[in-house]
């Protein structure tokens, strides 16, 4: 399965989806003009991955900022992760960023995936 590696820009996050190295990470800022279009390849990659996933998957969210249109797509990613056995989410937030911590909390209440909260 191919590695999905999208370098971040000033309005899109860095994406690394690499099953062989066990790296599943989204980081940076997410405020694309068309969030549905930006997230489509990520959701498609996850569809493929969910057919034969690794024995364990840790999906890292290390977002500095995301807009509300992206939040809907983040929920779509989490919903896909819900269907993959032995998946957990590592939700990183800057230590003084209560809003990002709260956002992670809310997502964790919306899906049946265990969340680990970590500061950076």
């Amino acid at each position: 399965m191919e590695v999905l590696n999208l370098p971040g820009t000033d309005d899109t996050p860095t994406i690394i989806l690499d099953r062989n190295n066990g790296i599943f990470e989204i980081s940076g800022r997410s405020l694309p003009e068309d969030s549905a279009e930006f997230y489509t390849p990520i959701l498609e990659w996850l569809d493929g991955y969910s057919n034969s996933p690794n024995s364990e998957t840790e999906f890292v969210f290390k977002l500095e900022y995301f807009n509300t249109a992206s939040s809907k797509l983040i929920l779509d990613i989490l919903s896909k992760l819900e269907t993959i056995d032995n998946t957990k989410v590592a939700w990183y937030y800057h230590e003084d960023d209560e809003d990002m911590q709260e956002a992670g909390n809310e997502f964790s209440e919306l899906v049946e995936v265990p969340f680990d909260f970590k500061t950076y």
Partner: peptide, 12 residues
């Protein structure tokens, strides 16, 4: 919400 609107807004 039924996904994003035609305009790409989430209504949020």
């Amino acid at each position: 919400g039924k996904g994003l609107s035609e305009k790409g807004g989430a209504g949020l």
